[in-house]
Design a binder for these strands. Structure first.
Lengths: 134, 134, 134, 134
DNA sequence: GTGGTCTAGACCACA
DNA sequence: GTGGTCTAGACCACC
C-alpha cells in the first residue's frame, strides 16, 4: 500500500492543505520512508489518493521543486532529490522550527528553562499530568 | 504604564490579528499579570492602544467571553473572570497544546522520546546546535 | 428583610436590566407579595439594594407608571396601584406570553400538541428526561 | 425550492438577526429538514437569499461551526455535521431551554405544577382562555 | 468560485 | 460613556 494512502489531512486547522501535504512529504523523507531518487506519484494519482483538488497537488509539487526536494522530468514524472544535503537541511529546518516555537511558547507562559524541561519530561513519560510552571 | 501598550502585533504571520491578541491576553493572564476581576480597557480604548479596528477588539472580547475568561456588563465594560478554575484551565490548555504539538512534530521526524529530551536540552542550554535525531 | 434584597439580576442575558427588574416587580405583584397601595422604595434606595445605576431604576419606575402599575406622589414616593384590574391584566399578559412563546418554540421543533404536553409532564414530574418529540 | 427561501426574519424583535438565523437553522435541523452531511449555501448565496449582509451570514456560520453543527472546508463550502450526536444535543438543548424557561416563568407567577399543566392544556386545546393560576 | 479577515462607519439600547 | 449589531466594501489565501 502506498505510503500516502494513510495520510490524513485536517481541513482548515489554520494550515493550508498544500502546506500540510508538503509537511507530510518532508516528514516521511526525514524519517527515511522515501528513498532518494524515488519516483513520486503523478499529480492526478496523488490528488486521487488524498481526495483533494489537482491544483492543490500542483502547488505542492511546485513548491517542493522550488526547494529542490524533488525534480521534474518532463513527460516522465517527479522524483525525489538524490542530494543528501537537501535531506539534512530539511531535517534541521523542521527540528529547529519545532524547538524554537515550543520554547518561545512555554517561556511566554512564564516557564523557566528548568520548568520547560520538567514539563516535557512529565508529558512524555507520564502521559497527562503537568507541573505547575512557576 | 498599561500592560497592553507594550504588546506588539506581527501583522501577517499566518495568525489573524484577533487570535494574536487573544493569545497575548491569555499569556499575560497565565503569567499572573492580570488580576482576576480586573477591568480591561473598553473596546474603544483597546483599539486605540493597539491601533486596530474596534470590530477586531470586539471579536477578541467576544471570543474570550465565550471561553468564560472575561465577562461583559453592558454599558459598563469587560472584566476578567474571578473564577480561578478558568485561569487554571487556560494555563493547562496552552501548556498541553504546546507540549502535544512539539512532541508530535518531533516524533513525526522519527525522534525517540529520549532524542526529544536531548534535542530540547541542547537547544535550551547551548543555543543552536542540535543532535542527530536518530 | 425587604423582598427585593434577594432579587438577583443576570447581567446581559439578552434582557436589559431594567426589564428584568420590571419583571421581578410584576411577578412579585402577581404572586401577591406586594399589597395593592403599598409604598415601594425610593429610586435611591432601590438602586442601592440592587446595586445598579439610579438611571436604571428611574426607567423602571417610569415604565411601570406608564403601565399604571405604580403611581408617583410628588415629594412622597411611589405606590403600587390599588386597581385590581391592573393586577389581573398583568397576570394575564405574563401568562399568555409564556404560554405562546413556549408552544411556538416546541412546535418549531416539530413537536405535536400531544408531544408538548408529554414533554412538559416529564420535565415537571421527572426532572431531566424528555421524550423523543416525534 | 430551497428551504431557506421561505424563512422570514423579524427585524428588531429583541433578537439579533444572526441569532434568528441560527435558530432557524437549528429548528430545521431538529425537524429533520436538513440531512446530515448536506452542503449548505455559500455565504454569498445565503446572504442573497435572506437579503442580509455577508458578514452577518459569516457570523452565523462561524458560531454554528464552533458549536460543531457545521464544518467549513476552505474554498469549498460549509457542510452540516454527520455526527448524529450533535443533532441530538441540539434537540435536547433547544427543548430543555424552552421547558425550563417556561416552567420557571410560570412558577414565578405562583403557579403550582398542576396549574402549569392545566394552563398549557387549556391554551393548546382551547385557544385563548386560561385558568386562574391559583 | 469559496471561506477568512479586517476596516470604516453607522446606529442602537443601555448605564 | 459602554457594549452590540449590522452594513458595505475591500483584500487575501485557497481550491
Amino acid at each position: 500500500m502506498p505510503l500516502w494512502e494513510q495520510w490524513s489531512l485536517a481541513f482548515d486547522v489554520r494550515m493550508p492543505i498544500y502546506r500540510q501535504i508538503i509537511l507530510l512529504f518532508n516528514q516521511a523523507f526525514v524519517r527515511g520512508e522515501i528513498r532518494p531518487g524515488e519516483r513520486i506519484p503523478s499529480i492526478r494519482e496523488m490528488s486521487a489518493f488524498l481526495k483533494v483538488n489537482t491544483n492543490t497537488i500542483q502547488r505542492v509539487y511546485q513548491e517542493m521543486e522550488k526547494d529542490e526536494q524533488i525534480n521534474s522530468k518532463r513527460g516522465i514524472g517527479y522524483f525525489f532529490t538524490e542530494d543528501l544535503k537537501t535531506l539534512e537541511k530539511t531535517r534541521r529546518n523542521l527540528t529547529v522550527d519545532s524547538l524554537r516555537r515550543f520554547a518561545d511558547e512555554m517561556r511566554a507562559l512564564g516557564c523557566s528553562d528548568h520548568d520547560i524541561m520538567k514539563e516535557l519530561e512529565i508529558y512524555i513519560k507520564g502521559g497527562k499530568q503537568n507541573a505547575t510552571c512557576s
